[in-house]
Simulated assay, not measured.
Amino acid sequence: MSSDETYEHTSLEAARWLVSLEESPDDQKLKDEFERWLSEDPTHREAWDSTSGIYDLMGPLFAKKGYSSSTQSCKSGWRHTSVSKRILYGVPIALAAAVASFMLVPDYYYRLTADYSTGKAQQMTVKLADGSEVSLAPKSAINVVFRREGDREIHLLRGEGFFKVSHNPERPFRVTAGKISVTDIGTEFDVRVSQKASAVAVRSGEVHVDGDNHLSTDLHSGQRIERRGRGIVSASHEDAENIGAWATSGQLVLEDSSFGDAVTQINPYYNGRIFVANRHLSVGKVTGVYNLSTPESALKAMADTQGAKLYHITPWIIVVSY
């Protein structure tokens, strides 16, 4: 993980702590866990100071919007601010997190360092020199390393790619994503990487997957494998036609997915930021097929299944809450 990705991950953790502390200001166990997180690494304190600092700077904005507030300090410098209407509870935190994210890890970093990259709500299909194709989801980036007589390598730096490989046994096609490496054996497959996990799913054909902790396995059509932090690996089966559906048909196919994970997947397709204000809402289950060309409508349909609503804070920020 690059230093920028690490800082983004830590900043998002800080924003989540801010949300949690807002939701449960009297939860002493939560406060104790927060203090432990804060003391684990100096970067945690740095990210917390940046995120809470942005929150403080935005205070006058919320006052103008009519939010009533009362301030209460704790030893970490956390301030609990209540708002006048429960449906807007956590909205200032969402805005702070949005601003922090936009300021800390701009998309142009990847435009400068990657061979191919996409930003928010952007997709791209790249035709490689060997005839293979790579479809990039929004907020994705790759580097391409093709040796004239040797291996063909793709480094997925972030996001998701769907690969249609022109098979050549004399020139292996390999994709690296986080802690895993995927070698084509003649196939179409999807690879996704984030700060927390790397995942591979095969639409047709076969791939070989290698990784740390002795991970070495073959995947066939309809099979998926995911490697999470600390080397935890999970395997599953799904309808092969649904794999890479975002690239082949513009659809997001969910089966018993958590609402939080569903929002994470649809967020890059929305030209702004989406935040879930309630922890209980995040763990609700979602199943369905959603049109990614209209991400806001898809988000509303998902929220409806949870009895939740969308609140438009600005033209580019949506908060989902009960």
Score class of each variant (00 low, 15 high):
301 A>R: 13
245 A>W: 08
144 V>S: 12
41 D>I: 02
191 V>D: 10
207 V>H: 08
171 R>M: 12
189 F>G: 13
141 A>E: 02
240 A>M: 00
54 I>A: 02
66 G>T: 02
22 E>G: 11
29 K>M: 08
78 W>P: 02
60 P>V: 07
136 L>V: 06
305 T>G: 01
241 E>S: 14
84 S>G: 15
198 S>D: 12
18 L>W: 04
99 V>H: 00
100 A>F: 04
214 H>P: 00
268 P>M: 08
313 I>N: 05
148 R>S: 13
235 A>R: 14
286 V>P: 04
31 K>Q: 10
239 D>E: 08
225 I>W: 00
101 S>R: 13
118 T>S: 05
259 F>A: 11
242 N>P: 00
29 K>G: 02
281 L>E: 06
271 N>W: 00
77 G>S: 09
91 V>C: 08
110 Y>G: 00
179 K>R: 10
10 T>C: 04
288 G>D: 02
171 R>V: 06
280 H>D: 15
79 R>P: 00
181 S>T: 11
98 A>Q: 14
124 M>W: 03
89 Y>I: 06
57 L>F: 07
232 I>N: 07
146 F>C: 04
102 F>L: 05
73 S>Q: 10
305 T>Q: 13
114 A>V: 05
21 L>G: 00
96 A>S: 15
94 A>W: 01
268 P>N: 09
179 K>Y: 03
234 S>V: 15
153 E>Q: 14
3 S>I: 10
10 T>P: 00
207 V>K: 06
79 R>Q: 15
248 T>A: 02
60 P>N: 03
266 I>S: 05
60 P>C: 05
224 R>D: 01
56 D>W: 05
87 I>E: 15
48 W>N: 01
216 S>Q: 09
234 S>A: 07
227 R>P: 00
170 E>R: 09
138 P>F: 14
94 A>N: 03
298 A>V: 07
215 L>P: 03
113 T>D: 07
245 A>Y: 04
76 S>I: 08
174 R>S: 13
197 A>K: 11
116 Y>V: 04
285 K>R: 14
195 Q>V: 03
192 R>C: 02
294 T>E: 13
260 G>K: 08
210 D>Y: 11
78 W>K: 05
288 G>E: 04
291 N>S: 07
205 G>N: 02
161 G>V: 01
120 K>G: 03
251 Q>E: 13
260 G>V: 04
